[in-house]
């Protein structure tokens, strides 16, 4: 079997073991890191085509609010139902906005995406029914009718997040190896030739945008359950910036990079906030600076032996 898939299975096994053995603070950190790895995985799909959305938090927040509102309506805390509701909300928004976004490239693509995310932020902040700037709480997670104690529920949530995230990473790995996936590099290199081979560049980008939005929505739902709370900050531009930051930090070489990047970021942030609460952003910024200077291809280039070519 493929080495990346084997690596993903090993990571899954480690997380499942971790869901039983880790201390509770680490359980939350791991869940959030996995949730955000999903968002970054989506950004990787777009980055391969040369597109960087500066407003991906739009779908992250839509996933969280979609799940939160559906569950509040139903008076339930079911994780499966929340995942379906939130992911569907983000996915349909991504499909819809994709019709517009697929027409733009480069800075225009980035800024349009940012504009949509800030639009959502503005709407959420003004909406009293959704708690305005305070947001609202998400019920304690239950699993298809099973309602374990909150401490156990957190551990089960990590296991669910691990299964889901690893499954998505494996699926995207297979996708990136297909012609559809490799079309991203072709589009980045030369759109005219792609059209003259008989493929629609706009449709390919639309599909990639929809995939990225769906993954971001899923990540938003998991983050909402893990934090137990939702607020408009999830859609703010700094959240989008953080996703781009971690994507660059991880690199676009492999689907393992988003997991590695997301973890390193959560760990650095946790310790930076702990030891330098007034200056944690400066610490995180310094880490990115060092990575860009030392490893221009992202963390992943540490593991890459072949140079010059992009592995599938």
């Amino acid at each position: 079997m493929d080495r990346t898939i084997l690596g993903l299975l090993a990571i899954l096994a480690a997380f499942l073991a971790g869901s039983l053995l880790l201390p509770s603070w680490a359980v939350s950190l791991a869940t959030v890191a996995l949730a955000k790895a999903l968002v970054i995985l989506g950004l990787l799909v777009l980055l391969r085509a040369g597109l960087v959305p500066f407003g991906q938090a739009l779908f992250f927040a839509l996933g969280a609010y979609g799940a939160g509102m559906a569950l509040r309506e139903a008076g339930s805390g079911d994780v499966v139902a929340g995942l379906f509701a939130g992911t569907a909300a983000a996915a349909s928004a991504a499909v819809l906005l994709g019709f517009l976004m697929a027409r733009y490239r480069e800075i225009f693509f980035a800024m349009l995406s940012l504009a949509f995310s800030m639009l959502l932020y503005g709407l959420l902040v003004k909406n009293a029914a959704l708690g305005g700037t305070d947001g609202f709480n998400v019920p304690a997670p239950t699993f298809l009718g099973w309602a374990p104690s909150p401490a156990t529920a957190r551990r089960v949530l990590l296991a669910v997040a691990a299964a889901l995230a690893i499954g998505c990473h494996a699926a995207i790995h297979v996708y990136l190896r297909s012609t559809m996936g490799r079309l991203a590099t072709a589009i980045r290199d030369n759109e005219i030739r792609v059209e003259y081979l008989g493929a629609s560049v706009q449709r390919a980008i639309h599909v990639k945008f929809a995939i990225a939005g769906t993954l971001a929505g899923m990540g938003g739902v998991l983050t909402a359950f893990s934090a137990g709370h939702i607020d408009p900050g999830m859609s703010y531009w700094t959240a989008s910036g953080e996703f781009v930051f971690v994507t660059v930090m991880g690199g676009a070489g492999s689907v393992l990079a988003p997991i590695a990047g997301s973890f390193l970021f959560e760990i650095v942030r946790t310790y930076a906030v702990e030891y330098a609460p007034q200056a944690w952003q400066a610490v995180v910024g310094a880490v990115l600076l060092v990575i860009i200077l030392v490893l221009p291809g992202g963390l992943w280039s540490l593991f890459q032996r072949r140079r010059g070519t992009q592995p599938p």
């Binding site: 297979v174 190896r177 297909s178 012609t179 559809m180 996936g181």
Partner: peptide, 10 residues
């Protein structure tokens, strides 16, 4: 069938 998202590129 080449544009199937599952069939390997190479």
């Amino acid at each position: 069938r080449g544009l199937s998202p599952w069939r390997p590129f190479a």
